[in-house]
Amino acid sequence: NEDWLCNKCGVQNFKRREKCFKCGVPKS
């Protein structure tokens, strides 16, 4: 499991996502 947490809103995103699904901030 290599899901990632958004640095802005803290929601968990799937590994394949390049941007946060909730707030749209790019993966860092």
Rank of each mutant, 00 (worst) to 15 (best):
K15T: 11
K22L: 00
W4F: 10
N13R: 00
L5Y: 14
C9E: 07
G10V: 05
N1S: 07
G24L: 07
V25K: 13
C23E: 02
K8D: 12
K27C: 14
C6P: 04
V11P: 06
R17W: 09
E18L: 05
C23W: 00
V25S: 11
K22T: 03
E18C: 01
G24E: 08
Q12V: 05
E2A: 01
K19H: 09
G10W: 12
N7T: 13
R17H: 04
V25L: 09
K19S: 07
K27E: 10
F14M: 09
N1T: 09
C9T: 01
C23R: 00
E18Q: 11
L5D: 15
G24K: 10
K15C: 09
C23M: 02
C9N: 05
D3R: 00
C20E: 02
G10C: 10
N1G: 07
K19E: 11
N7R: 12
S28W: 06
G10D: 10
K19I: 12
V11Y: 15
C20P: 02
R17D: 03
N1M: 15
L5S: 11
P26K: 07
K8L: 08
C23F: 03
L5W: 03
W4I: 03
C20S: 01
N7A: 14
K19G: 08
R16Q: 08
K15D: 04
V25F: 07
G24P: 00
D3L: 05
C9D: 03
N1K: 14
V25G: 11
D3F: 09
F21L: 06
N13I: 02
E18K: 04
C20Q: 01
C6V: 02
R17Q: 10
K22V: 01
C23I: 00
K19N: 15
K22A: 03
Q12A: 08
V25Y: 08
V25D: 13
V25T: 14
F21H: 06
Q12C: 04
R17S: 12
C20T: 06
N7P: 15
E2P: 00
D3T: 12
F14R: 11
K8T: 12
G10E: 05
N13P: 04
K22D: 05
W4S: 06
V11N: 13
P26C: 03
D3Y: 06
W4R: 02
K15G: 11
K8W: 09
E2T: 15
C23G: 01
F21E: 10
C9G: 03
E2R: 07
C6D: 07
F21W: 13
K19R: 08
G10F: 13
L5P: 13
C6S: 00
R16G: 13
W4Q: 13
N13V: 03
C20L: 01
G24H: 05
C23A: 03
K27Q: 11
C9K: 00
F14Q: 11
Q12W: 09
P26E: 12
G24A: 06
W4G: 04
F14L: 06
N13S: 03
D3W: 08
L5T: 13
G10L: 14
C6E: 02
S28P: 15
W4D: 07
V11Q: 13
K27A: 11
C20V: 01
E2S: 14
V11K: 12
N1W: 02
K22G: 02
L5F: 14
V25R: 06
F14P: 05
C9R: 02
K22C: 01
F21D: 08
E2H: 09
E18R: 06
F14W: 10
W4H: 07
C20K: 00
F21S: 09
C20R: 00
P26Q: 08
G10M: 13
F21T: 12
E18T: 07
Q12G: 10
E2C: 10
K8F: 05
C9H: 05
F14V: 04
V25W: 08
W4L: 05
R17P: 08
K8G: 11
K8M: 09
C6R: 05
K19M: 11
K22S: 06
G10S: 10
K22Q: 07
K19P: 06
P26A: 12
Q12H: 15
D3K: 04
K8S: 09
V25Q: 12
P26T: 11
C23T: 01
K15L: 05
G24C: 04
D3G: 06
E18H: 03
N13E: 04
E2N: 14
K15S: 12
C9P: 06
G10K: 12
L5N: 15
C6A: 01
C23H: 02
C20M: 02
K22Y: 03
P26V: 06
R16V: 05
W4V: 05
V25C: 10
K27G: 09
G24S: 06
W4P: 04
V11F: 11
V11I: 04
G24V: 01
V11G: 09
G10Y: 14
N13T: 02
C6I: 00
D3Q: 06
R16P: 15
K19F: 10
R17C: 08
R16E: 13
N7K: 06
K19C: 10
K8A: 14
K8Y: 05
E2L: 05
P26L: 07
R16M: 01
N13Q: 04
R17I: 14
L5A: 13
R16W: 06
D3A: 03
E18A: 07
F14G: 13
K22I: 00
G24Y: 11
R17F: 15
K15A: 12
C20W: 00
